[in-house]
Amino acid sequence: MSFRTAQRHGYAVEFSPYYPQLLACATCQYYGIAGSGSLFLLESLPQGVRPVQKFDWNDGLFDVTWSENNEHVLVTASGDGSIQIWDTAQPQGPIKSLREHTKEVYGVDWSLTRGEQFILSASWDQSVKLWDPAGNKSIATFLGHQHVVYSAIWSPHIPCCFASTSGDHTLRVWDTRNPQISKLVLTAHDAEVLSCDWCKYDDNVVVSGSVDSTIRGWDIRRPQSPIFQLDGHKYAVKRVKCYPFERNVVGSSSYDFSVKIWDFTRPQPCLETIEHHSEFVYGFDFNLHVPGQVADCSWDEWVRVYTPKCLAPT
């Protein structure tokens, strides 16, 4: 099932944590180099993917995350250095725009652990900021990366803990109670690290994807070397996601126009390669409610919702 974001190039896609049929896609005009951006709210139905709402912003939108405490609220990351908080019940525009970063915001994430309601923003100004969505100023700024920060992702298990990835080849782990210094700094790859995600079944495992075309898994208790490496993409790995229904499964999207599904415990870990795009595949996500279902989005203007054969129910 597919939907075309006409004249908007896909950067990120994420399923709703509340409704199995809803997903959001952040897009940019002119490949994110110039122009405006749009946030699409989509509904995946048996007869196809249909648009529910569309929100426009005056700069490109590079990432999107859903609120974990309000089914109507989403947050986007923009090329103008701001993050936007949207309420689907108020379609006239964002209910709040927060601007402190001095360069593009490339990643946003909403906290997952119980009792926390915070947003992370990762920016090309080499910083990560922590926000309370109820406030108008950031709570803390995390400095240490020596290049652009591409992603900042909350641990689903450990309160106050997140990981960030950067063009400086490192993955860092932080405690929000001590923003002055990162808990862990590891040189994760030999090139820029574009993405990371936490294993849903092991508090200590985080997965990274890089411009060097590899995916690596790390145990943060023993970070001297990766616990696995996945080779097979031909170009940069733009997004990695850990599967919410099996410990050993990882999904990835790449500049090589493909999505791959992996089982990192197998001798031949690549379970399936999906090639249904004609441009960079920037966004990828697993549906938390429907085992096996995934969504991706690409610079070719298409969002696709499907179940890879290797994840199909037996």
Rank of each mutant, 00 (worst) to 15 (best):
P159A: 13
L186F: 14
V207H: 04
W218F: 01
P223R: 06
H145W: 02
C161G: 03
P159W: 10
R177Q: 13
W198A: 02
V211I: 06
P223V: 09
H157R: 11
A152P: 07
L194T: 12
D219G: 05
A152T: 12
V206C: 00
V206D: 00
T170Q: 12
E192R: 01
D202E: 09
H145L: 11
H157P: 06
Q180K: 14
R222K: 08
G217H: 07
S164V: 09
Y150I: 12
R221K: 10
L171W: 01
V185Y: 00
V148D: 15
S213W: 04
S182V: 05
P156T: 15
V148H: 13
T176V: 12
K200A: 07
L194H: 11
D175H: 07
S155Y: 04
Y201T: 09
K200M: 11
V185L: 05
T165Y: 05
V148R: 13
Q224E: 15
V149F: 14
F228N: 15
L171E: 09
P159L: 10
S210N: 02
P179I: 11
D197T: 05
K183V: 06
R222N: 15
T187S: 11
W218K: 05
C199G: 04
D202R: 08
S195H: 00
A188C: 06
T165L: 03
H189G: 04
H147F: 14
K183I: 12
S213M: 03
I215K: 03
L184K: 05
V207M: 11
I227V: 14
S166G: 12
S195Q: 01
T214Y: 01
S155A: 11
S182D: 09
D202V: 00
R177E: 09
T165H: 07
W154Y: 12
S210E: 01
G209P: 00
C199I: 03
P226F: 08
C196W: 00
I181Q: 12
D168H: 09
I158W: 00
S166L: 09
L184G: 02
P179R: 10
T170M: 08
S213A: 15
F228R: 12
N204P: 01
N178A: 13
G167F: 07
C161F: 07
D175I: 00
P179D: 13
R222L: 02
I227A: 09
E192H: 02
C161K: 11
L184E: 04
Y201M: 14
P223K: 05
F162G: 14
R216E: 06
Y201Q: 08
S213F: 08
A163P: 02
D197E: 05
D168K: 07
N204I: 08
Q224V: 04
T187M: 04
T214S: 11
D203T: 05
V173F: 07
W174Q: 10
V193W: 02
Q224P: 02
H189F: 13
R216N: 07
R172I: 06
K200V: 05
D203S: 08
V207S: 11
I227D: 10
W154I: 07
C161S: 11
G209C: 06
D203V: 03
W174A: 09
D219E: 09
N204E: 09
S155F: 08
R216G: 03
D175A: 04
V211Q: 03
T214K: 05
K200P: 01
V207K: 08
H147Y: 14
H147L: 11
T176I: 09
T214P: 01
D175Q: 06
I215R: 02
I215C: 01
S208G: 04
L171Y: 00
S210R: 00
